[in-house]
Write a protein that binds this DNA or RNA. Structure first.
Lengths: 229, 229, 229, 229
DNA sequence: TATGAATGAGGCTTCATTCAT
DNA sequence: TATGAATGAAGCCTCATTCAT
């Protein structure tokens, strides 16, 4: 029942000599969230003990309650404060990109992966998949503040390509999911041991290749705005 | 929180005649697994109480321990006895299929969806994603007995298409994942409320369309077994 | 901080031989309330540990939660189920009494004392005094279902005496409290060690004597219903 | 739950000039006790958090431990330093009183009420009732230093009346309790919400009236020291 | 075979108390 | 002297599991 005891107690040794009250209090909440994200992703919400989070953050369980009202609150903070900041960054990067529709789509996917997939934030999709139904408000937040914004970027890229005749005219809402799915799965696999040996970078390049050609305009496609003659 | 008491009789009618893991008549264990699957998928393993499973199965908690040594055992049984039977069926169906590579690939995906995606078995991917790291042996079983076999089918279809020059020559292991990802995500979404309004059938058709063209051979592709001249 | 460890673990030795599942389950709630009343009265609500109640009732803490949702619930049950039954009895006894106003008043007080003061129910006033402000709903219940009914009996007795010219005309609401106060204090003292050597029976007789004469009609009192001439 | 920040300046104006246990100027300990009394009375000892006391006193929790070794110490100080000073005052006032036995008894009761009952000190009886059994030494102190002295005053008054033939010859120890009970109950009610609408001043006057006549000598009473002829 | 009362270990949370600043 | 971050010992409560019936 007890999953292998992943003891995450590797603290910064320098701090050990400094007494416990010297700790930079401003960093506490961040350290706690950091530890919590790791553990929630690795074990799930219920199976993660508050004391584990505390130990991983280098504090006692009691300390956590100075910053978060309860365990659920930690989860909320993890989700709320993790993705949104980098989302803004991503949006800006992408806004500045110049190139064709397919190039833009590839850029969006690669940027997304660099900023989330390649970091520990990649654990959040797994976490949301596991816990969304247990925390509906959190799910709503994630849907509206994270997913919706991320999908907008993808939708724009696709639409851009459609407008330029590079992509065939597809239903945007569905096409967006077709793009999202393989990237999210990559994040899930990265945090899961479901596909141990998979080379995710290779996989992602193949995803990009497949999507771009799969969505590509084909002779006989009705062009947007073109007359049908 | 209580999931609707899924009577589990709305299945693919083809399957009704075939054995299922839920047998009637002295069907206690099956009913328990049935209930357990529902609850594990809806709430996760830790958050599901044995007594809830019992109640949903129409028995009391004590009864469950006549059939399963402990809670983890229930989870194992759910995974072990759920997918494997239908896998065999699927393998047979697909073996009998006659058509081109793209047609075969589409058929594999659609069959997979009908037998699993459209069923409550669609919950298992979500469950495995959430719990794989907590139950490594179970993850191994799932990987070897379910995923590997499923991916074989897909690999065969792709290879078949490559051999016939209908698909471009791709790295099979990666290409398989490119196919798997969007279908698994569909099952996740179906059990998650992460994408509330999504029309999964429409989505899946678009996935098939995109994959087939995305994997499609393109002028200049090196054909398998062809001389390069 | 820890008050002297009053270990209330004197169980019925006969039952010890019988296995723990044999215990008459129907008696459980009663035994728990019994133990809880003792401890709540002796130590107060907060200072009483659920485990103490359990031990005093001969069960484990977990068992208590089969019968009561939480600690507060135990307190509520203690109050609700303790006094009301004997109140009814008392009301009937008193309704049958035949005698003068002073005799009736004395009878009411003595009956009250015999049924509550001399039993462990005498602890409840102390408990309510200590906890009323922490549990307003409970206080309201006690006020409306217990105090109000008890005071009605006293009010009737006083009114009866006034009508017969045996008591002077007093404001009933206030007079009732004048009667109630010394009896309630007797119960408090009985459960408190504040007045160690006090002979409560002697005290009560003196209270009755003092009240009867203190409330007694005096020459020159305006009689109810008499002309003033 | 937060009691109104009783500025504690609405006291019997006579007392204002006299020393009180709340001194200004470096009055930290006094302010802490002030706050503690409020909270202990309102919620009880266990349910009062040290930090609440601190906040109500305008300091932080740590500060409290400069003045008191622990929470129990605060309680002790509250009891020890609260009543004793005003007791002396009361004793002096009463020593100077000139009048009959009944008048003296009425004066004692009214003075007591003015100095304690009408003050926030009125909360102490409730506090002692609730906590006496948890803090036996404190109870002993209260019994010996407060109750005993207070009851002496009352005993003197009664004895004085008996000696003058105004009161019937009663057992002093019991008679004292008969007088004490209704006044203490008034203080309890004042701090309790058990008798919401009660007019305590009216009540007390009726108590005095009833006691004086209830204790009053009656024709045929054996007079103290009188020959029986 | 099924029940459900009971257990007891363990998790979440509170809070009196400490102590470097 | 005052602060407030941090601790750690409990206390409340849950729930997987047992077992007499």
């Amino acid at each position: 029942m007890k999953p292998e005891n992943t003891d995450c107690t590797e603290r910064c040794p320098v701090l050990e000599t400094v007494t416990r009250w010297t700790r930079r209090k401003d960093a506490r909440p961040g350290e706690i969230l950091d530890a919590a994200l790791d553990l929630f992703v690795a074990r799930g919400f219920s199976a993660t003990k508050v004391e584990d989070i505390a130990r991983a953050a280098g504090v006692t369980a009691g300390t956590i309650y100075r910053y978060y009202a309860n365990k659920e609150d930690i989860l909320k903070a993890v989700i709320r404060e993790s993705l949104v900041p980098t989302l803004q960054e991503g949006e800006q990067l992408i806004a500045q990109f110049d190139g064709s529709g397919p190039e833009l789509l590839a850029f969006v996917i690669r940027t997304w992966w660099q900023m989330h997939g390649a970091t520990k934030l990649s654990g959040i999709p797994k976490l949301m998949i596991a816990e969304a139904s247990n925390f509906p408000e959190l799910a709503r937040f994630h849907r509206e503040e994270v997913i919706a914004r991320g999908e907008n970027l993808i939708a724009s890229a696709i639409q851009f390509g459609i407008d330029r005749g590079e992509f065939r005219p597809v239903a945007l809402d569905v096409a967006v999911k077709v793009v999202v799915a393989p990237v999210v799965m990559a994040m899930v696999w990265k945090n899961t041991d479901i596909c141990p040996g998979l080379d995710l970078d290779h996989y992602l390049e193949e995803v990009i290749e497949t999507l771009i050609h799969g969505l590509g305009a084909r002779p006989g496609d009705k062009q947007n705005g073109e007359s049908e003659a």
